[in-house]
Write a protein that binds this DNA or RNA. Structure first.
Lengths: 341, 341
DNA sequence: TGTTAGCACTCACTTAAGAAGAGTGCTAAT
DNA sequence: ATTAGCACTCTTCTTAAGTGAGTGCTAACA
């Protein structure tokens, strides 16, 4: 168990290092307000804290730097919630000010604002389209042998895909198919669409139109390649401003990571609500060994949810980012749920 | 006018520097095959070439490096067309191998392949949607006071946008409007849509439905915010591999440039066909003072066209990039025009 | 017993100086 | 006109010494 004084020293060191990015020395600490004991005493405490694994030195005679364990402790026990300013609130709420109605636009703008507010990089995961429900099907023929299938979901999202038509397919056939689809599949969540189509609707279509295997497989194909939750970034280049990322290779690895959608998906914890903080190697990713990721989630109506993340150096301003993410996720949930989309 | 020997020396220097990124010395040149004269002679020629502005030194006693003017001359007069390998041809053509039909997917994949092939950064501008013609309108009501408008174009592109409905609007009203729109506006290019809507169709709608100013302005709004040609990148991080971009600030500026869509648009020459090469400061952009941009354009059917660009260091492999861009733009045009989309 | 002053020691960082090497420009010989 | 020879320049690498921030330990002190 840590003594009060040790807690105090740890807190000051982390706070100071977050601000300055420089190893913190005993003399420097002794000058902080609230610190009543001498550098020598602080050195003793620091030696203890280092022994316990909360602090590290960059070399034998440098000041101390928080270790991952130090950050973890700080985040778990020393993080006092911060109140965000009305200015920040206004800025976050400005996402909705000009009545944008597409969820996608809202998320995109949120990403930008969040990165501007934090000066870190933001990653927003769009709400999971898989849970949207079909509102309307339509098929628009383009040429003799191709057409575009369009699926509108209950919150106004539009999926579309071009597919090839069997050669002997008439406009009235298309109309029939569209009617069948709209009769049978409205209200079905996208994730179940393919299954329903194959198991239930296929038979009906065959019955009404003879066997149109080509069309069916095309339709199934259409439903198979639904886009997953899209990813939006804000402030990708903000990393360049962090002194710990003046090393080309670190920035490069991060940038490369962000180009790979599959890898980025994996930094979001599954099925976790509330604010999650992952520090350094907790991210299980080489490129992010010196990064922390703070995630929150928002939801649209019941069930559908997306995620917000801020990725910054382990030395990031946890207090502020947590407060901002907390508010923004709440605001997004509130606003996106309010108006049915 | 340059002598034959000067041309030869300039060619060797540029070729060598493109490969090695190191200043080229007289001794090194004298060892190249085809060079029959001594280092001393070469030094004399180099002094002349420098005086003429084609070469530069990095310091008093370094080897020579091509100047911008040198590259320009090289590109204009010394660039012998290169034949691309069948391997490269296959790779480029693989874009179409799995019968992707969405133009957007094709472009996206092309960007990736081009960056892999060149190890530079590729930027592809999607074909200009403004010239697509309306194939079908539809409006799908979402809630009592909102609906999504969908425009399908003749090549299968789908635009959609949520808008608010006047409060006293019935489903049958919507049907009427959709019918009117489809009767009047099919075949109209997107760029003229707003104008036609305001000038011609508005009156018809009013006549049939009484004055629905709210709806009209919403519809006009829908057509106003058409997405411009989208931008796709390939190999954004390839720049990190170029030795001249080991400087953090240069990479940062480039990355920031690529985040700004408006600025990126401006690197594409307007209304130019064929291969265009812009070297260094010819790009009129601070971030690209040490970059060259090679652009080509492709077209989809008649009229609509998009652009391809490769951005790399001024020291880029012009021969190869020109050959690849030339082939790819031709292939894209051929394939995208072939099947009506 | 906990706290603190004092001091030797460590290590990164900076500056200076010298040595090596690549390449040039000029002059004189071919 | 071409080229060999040579002095000169400038970068880069290495070594050495000096500086300063910060520590750990010991001994004195409250």
């Amino acid at each position: 168990m840590l003594t009060n004084r040790q807690l105090q020293v740890l807190q000051v060191i982390v706070d100071d290092f977050i601000m300055s990015a420089q190893p913190v020395g005993s003399r420097q600490i002794s000058k902080k307000e609230g610190i009543t004991f001498s550098p020598a005493t602080i050195r003793n405490e620091m030696a203890d804290l280092e022994e316990l694994g909360f602090l590290e030195k960059t070399h034998t005679s440098s000041g101390r730097v928080p270790s991952e364990k130090g950050y973890r402790f700080y985040v778990d026990h020393l993080l006092k919630p911060q109140i965000i300013t009305t200015n920040e609130i206004h800025k976050i709420q400005s996402v909705f000010q000009d009545r944008i109605m597409e969820t996608e636009q809202v998320i995109r703008k949120s990403a930008t604002i969040l990165s501007e507010l934090t000066s870190y990089t933001s990653i927003l995961l769009g709400p999971d389209v898989q849970l949207h429900k079909v509102k309307r099907f339509s098929i628009v023929p383009l040429t003799a042998d191709s057409a575009v299938a369009i699926i509108v979901t209950d919150n106004g999202h539009v999926e579309n895909r071009i597919f090839s038509l069997p050669s002997d397919f008439s406009p009235s056939d298309i109309e029939k198919v569209v009617n069948i689809l709209n009769e049978r599949l409205i209200g079905v969540p996208l994730e179940q669409l393919q299954m329903k189509l194959e198991l239930e609707t296929a038979a009906v279509i065959k019955q009404h139109l003879g066997t149109y295997d080509g069309l069916l497989s095309s339709l199934i194909d259409v439903t198979a390649h639904q886009s997953e939750g899209k990813i939006f970034y804000g402030g990708k280049t903000n990393m360049f401003n962090q002194p710990e990322f003046h090393d080309i290779n670190k920035v490069r690895m991060l940038m490369e990571l962000m180009e790979k959608t599959t890898q980025i998906q994996s930094i979001f914890p599954m099925n976790q609500s509330g604010i999650q903080i992952r520090i350094g190697s907790e991210n299980n990713h080489l490129a992010m060994e010196e990064c922390s990721v703070i995630t929150a989630s928002y939801s649209v109506g019941e069930g559908q949810s997306g995620s917000i993340a801020i990725i910054g150096p382990t030395r990031m301003d946890y207090r502020r980012v947590v407060a901002l993410l907390d508010f923004m996720s709440g605001d997004l949930t509130r606003q996106l749920t309010q108006k049915p989309r």
